[in-house]
Design a protein around this nucleic acid. Sequence first.
DNA 1: GTGAAAGCGCTAACAC
DNA 2: GTGTTAGCGCTTTCAC
Lengths: 343, 343
Amino acid sequence: METITIKDIARALNLSTSTVSRALRNSYEINAETKKLVMEYAEKMHYRPNPIALSLRDSKSKSIGVIIPEIANNFFSQLINGIESIAYSLGYHTVIFQSHESYEREVANTNYLVSRKVDGLLVSLSSLTTDLVHFEELIEKGMPIVFFDRVPNDIETHKVVVDNFLGSYEATEHLIQSGRRRIAHLTSPIYLSIATERLAGYKKALEDNGIAFDESYVKYCHHGGKLTTENEAAMQELLSMPEPPDAILAASDRLTSGCLSVLHKNHIRIPEEIALVGFTNIGVADLLNPPLTAVVQPAMEMGQQAVELLIRLIENPKKISKFETRSFKTSLMVRESSAGSRS
Amino acid sequence: METITIKDIARALNLSTSTVSRALRNSYEINAETKKLVMEYAEKMHYRPNPIALSLRDSKSKSIGVIIPEIANNFFSQLINGIESIAYSLGYHTVIFQSHESYEREVANTNYLVSRKVDGLLVSLSSLTTDLVHFEELIEKGMPIVFFDRVPNDIETHKVVVDNFLGSYEATEHLIQSGRRRIAHLTSPIYLSIATERLAGYKKALEDNGIAFDESYVKYCHHGGKLTTENEAAMQELLSMPEPPDAILAASDRLTSGCLSVLHKNHIRIPEEIALVGFTNIGVADLLNPPLTAVVQPAMEMGQQAVELLIRLIENPKKISKFETRSFKTSLMVRESSAGSRS
DNA sequence: GTGAAAGCGCTAACAC
DNA sequence: GTGTTAGCGCTTTCAC
C-alpha cells in the first residue's frame, strides 16, 4: 500500500540504497542488469521519489511561487494560465498566493514561499505596498524574482509590463476624437507605477489635444475599487460636479465595472451622456450594456514571458549583469460605450 | 544572512539541538532561563523553522491541496477565496491546481499534491473524469478528501454541494411562468452529477407543468463550453430547428456567456425572441445586455464549509463513520433576460 | 534539566 | 560496480 522508498527497493533487491539511487538516475557506473532490475521493480511498485526529501537536501523544489493581488480577476487568472502552461512544460510547479491588496499578506506569502524553498518568485505588487525591503533582501540573497504588471521602480530585476502610458494615451485620445472634452480618470492609489503611468498617459493626451488638465476630474480609489462604496463615492463626486464629465477612463478591471454599475444605477446613458473606456480583461466586455470599449492587456503572453525569464534566471545562477524589461502593447477594443455622439 | 537553523542557535548558545528544539516549543522540562535565552536569540536572529524538514519528519505539511477545473471562472475563484480565508485562519496553507477539465491533469495534480504531503484534498471534478480510482485509493489509504460542487456519486466522504435539481427546477418553472413553452437546455457531458441533476430538475419542471420533454431541445457541450466552436454549433442546431426554442436554460458559467454571445451575433432579441437563464456567478450579470437572469451559487460559503469539513477530517483521524453532504440552495436572480413577454 | 542518537527519504563523497 | 556514511533541519526517545 503506502508509498515505497528507495530503502524498500534496496531491501527487496538486496542492494544498497545508493546503488538503487544510482540505478534509478541511470548512472553510468551501474551494471546494466542491476539497473534493469531496479527500474523494473521500481516501476512495478509505483516508486515515486519523495520531493520533500529532495527539497530538504537540495534546498530547491522545482516549483515557483506566484504572488498576485487576487485571483478573481480575469487579467490575473489569464496570466496564471500563461504561467502554468510554460512552467508545467518545463517541469516546474506553480504555487499561487493572493495578497488581497494587503501589504502584510504579501510579506507573509513571500516568507512562506521562501521557507517552502520555491526556486523563484513571480510577483505583481499589492496596491498598498510601498515598502519593498522584503523583496530587496531576497534578491540580495540571490533569490530569482521577476515582477510583472505592477512592478517596482526601484528594484533591478527582470520585469514584464505593458505600455501603460501608451494604452492610457490612446484611450484618452480616442475619447477626445469621439468628441469628449471633460474626461475624468478613475484610478487607484499612486503607489503603483501602473497608476502613475496611466495617469501620465491620460494627461499627455489631454495636453497634446489642447485640453487643460483638471485635477478635480481625477479620482483615486484607495482600495482599487475593491470596496464598492469607495467606487460609488468617487463617482458621485464626479456626477455632482458643476460640470460633470462627459467621459470616464477607468484604470482597472474593478474600477471599470464599478463605474459602469454606478452609471447604470443613476440612469445615465452611455455613451450619450457619459462615455466609458476602461482597462479590463473581462471576457464579456462585448456583451455588456453597452458593449464596453476596453484597454486589454495580453495577459496570457505576459505570464508566459514572465515565467520564461524567471526560469532562465533560476537555471542560470551566474549573476546576470543586465536585466530586461519586456514591454507589451495594450490593445484598444473600441465598442459602443465610447461611440462618438457629440462631435 | 541566510536562514538560521536550530543547530546554529545551539552552537551559538552552547547548547544541544534538542534543548533548543524543546525550548522553542516551550517544553515544560526546560529551565525557564534557558528557554528565555533561546527564545530571545531565536527572535533576534529571525529564526523560522524549516517547514520542509518538518514535512519530511511528520509526513504532513499544514497545507491543503485544491483541485478545480479552472481558476478563470468566478464561481471557482470566489470559492477559493472562501477556502483560503478559513484555511488561513486555521493555520493551513492552500495550494491550488487546475485540471483544465482534463482527466490526466487531474490525476497528475493529485499525485503531485500527495507526494508533496498535503494534509488533505479539496476537489471539484473535471468534466471528463469518469474513472475515480485515483481518489478511491487515496481515501482507502486514509487521505482526507472533501468534494465540492462537482462531486462523485460513488465515493463516500464529505461533500459540499448545491441543490442543482431545485435550482434548475426553479429556473425552468420561472421560464414557464413567464410564458415560455419551448425551453432548451444547454449543458455539459453527463458524467458529472451536477449535469444530471440539472437536467432532471429541468425535466421535472416541464413535466409538472404539462410540457412534454423533447430530447432535441437538450444540447450537450462536451467541453463544457470551453470551446466556443462547440458552443456555437450547439446553438446553431437549436436556432435552425423547425420550432426553435423560445427560452434557454444554460447549465454553467461558460455555457451561459457563450450562449448570450451567440444570440447577440445572430441578432436575436432577448427576451422577446428567446429568453435566457443561466447558472453563473459572473459579477457583472446585471450589467449585461440584457441584464441576465442567473442561478447563483453561494460559492464563498461553499468553499468555507468545504475546508471546515476537511480540516475536521484532518485533525480527527479516527475513522468517521458517517460522512455528511452539506447542501446549499441556489438563488434565482430574476432580471430582464427572462422577462415575460408572451404570456 | 540537558545531551546523544536515530530517523524521515534522498544523494554524493569516499571507500573497496 | 557496489556499499558505507554523512548530512539536509527537525523532533523525540532514551540516557544521564
